[in-house]
Computed example of a mutant assay.
Amino acid sequence: MPAVRILPDEDARDLIALTREICAKDLAPRVDESERAALFPQETFRLLGRSGLLSLPYPEEHGGGGQSYEVYLQVVEEIASVWMSVAVGVSVHVLTCYPVVAWGTDGQRDALLPGMLGGEQLGAYCLSEPDSGSDVASMRTRATLVADGSAYTLRGTKAWISHAGHADYYTSFVRTSDVGARGLSCFVVPADADGIEFAPRERKMGLDGDPVRQVTFAGTPVDADRRMGDEGQGMAIAMAALDSGRLGIAAAATGLAQAALDAAVRYAGEREQFGRPIGEFQGLGFMLADMEAAVTSARATYLHAARLSDAGRPFSREAAVAKLVCTDNAMRVTTDAVQVLGGAGYTQDFPLERYLREAKVTQIFEGTNQIQRLVISRHLLKSI
């Protein structure tokens, strides 16, 4: 059943209604076949872009939707309740725009944001490397300034990159000096730049509509005016972007959990054993109640962090809490939903097995949940 939402105004209510209409008419009929065939939903992203759903949390003056994070994240949740790969893609794209909006100059915003926020472009976010995951500061991909200072040359390999091979640009974090975390910088690399190479798609257990590859910069030239912020500010940019990106994953995980709960409730109300619906047996009824409590608490957690962000208050700790709670709850709810369906839940005749596979990665990307616990504990100790 649709989540009950308290939205700030009529525009937000219309936006949720539009999202639900697009999900029902355009996403739901295609998701099962597309995921089975591991097809990249390019046309779906174009539709979302034309509908204004790829730029919601950014200012209208830059071509964005001018929506609060509270509203934007609920749109992501709605999409995830129908097609998780697409919801993750929306979150990734929004993440790729953040460095330009928050750290770019007026000239850079004027040059780049109309395309990034206009609905026709899709971005990729290049942070991790084969030997640099949670330890971001250990990355080795390097940008070397050419002699006249007009451009950089990028060399190195990025790993686990969503939309690789399909993106129009790659928001990339690379090393410009050897001063550890203070030696990283951020560049927006156009997809048509020379020397960009792609490895074969990763063979993942889920999110098959989201192609993930290694991206290698083999002497890739990038104009100096595509560096966001100063040299050495890359770590600060990446961490600030990830605070918001974690909320996107939290909202998507909540939508996935809601879909699993809805499917379990429908099945428990229709499947009969011993002369009555199985949901009437206390063992299953209590399981459904716990699933509902997990989904509701997850939603409240990410909305709390979003409202702090919208109010201009610090929200790093709350973003980590939301990512941790929402993704752990998604794993629990999808696992229990499979159990409610019994043997049927283990088959591909129902989407529950796919939901379970999709939920697992939410505990890993945008910072593992072990990293979230580290972030939370450090914030707590700083407050003493």
Rank of each mutant, 00 (worst) to 15 (best):
C326D: 08
T335H: 12
A311H: 03
F315I: 07
A311M: 06
H304R: 14
E292H: 04
A300N: 10
D310W: 05
T327C: 14
A337Q: 06
A337P: 08
A320T: 06
A306Q: 10
T296H: 08
S309P: 00
R299V: 10
R313S: 02
T301K: 02
T327H: 10
T335S: 14
D336M: 01
D336Y: 01
R317K: 14
A337N: 07
S316R: 14
A294Q: 13
T296N: 13
L308M: 15
V295Q: 04
V321C: 11
H304A: 14
G312N: 01
A293Y: 01
A306N: 11
A294D: 14
E318G: 07
G312I: 04
F315Q: 04
A300Y: 00
A305W: 03
P314S: 12
V325W: 00
A294W: 03
T334W: 02
R299F: 02
V321G: 01
T296D: 13
V325L: 12
M331S: 12
A330P: 03
E292V: 09
T327D: 08
V338L: 02
E292S: 08
A320M: 04
H304C: 08
A319M: 08
C326N: 07
R317S: 11
G312R: 02
A320K: 03
A320L: 03
L308C: 13
V338A: 01
V321F: 09
Y302D: 09
G312T: 07
R299Y: 04
V333Y: 05
A337R: 04
A293N: 09
Q339N: 12
N329G: 03
V321H: 12
E318K: 05
T327Y: 04
L308S: 15
P314W: 12
V325Y: 00
P314D: 12
C326Y: 07
A298T: 06
R317Y: 10
A337L: 04
V295S: 06
T296L: 11
N329T: 02
V295M: 07
R332E: 08
F315T: 05
T335F: 06
V321I: 14
T334E: 05
F315K: 02
M331Q: 13
L324V: 10
F315A: 11
S297L: 11
T301A: 04
R307L: 14
A319R: 05
L308T: 15
S309H: 14
A322V: 09
N329E: 05
D310R: 05
T327E: 08
A293P: 00
D336Q: 05
V295E: 03
A337H: 04
A306Y: 07
E318F: 03
R332C: 00
L324T: 09
A311Y: 01
A319L: 08
T301L: 01
V333T: 10
R299T: 13
K323T: 05
S309D: 01
A337F: 06
F315S: 11
A322D: 07
R307V: 08
D336I: 01
P314R: 11
D328V: 08
E292P: 00
V321L: 15
T335V: 01
A306V: 09
S316A: 15
L303I: 12
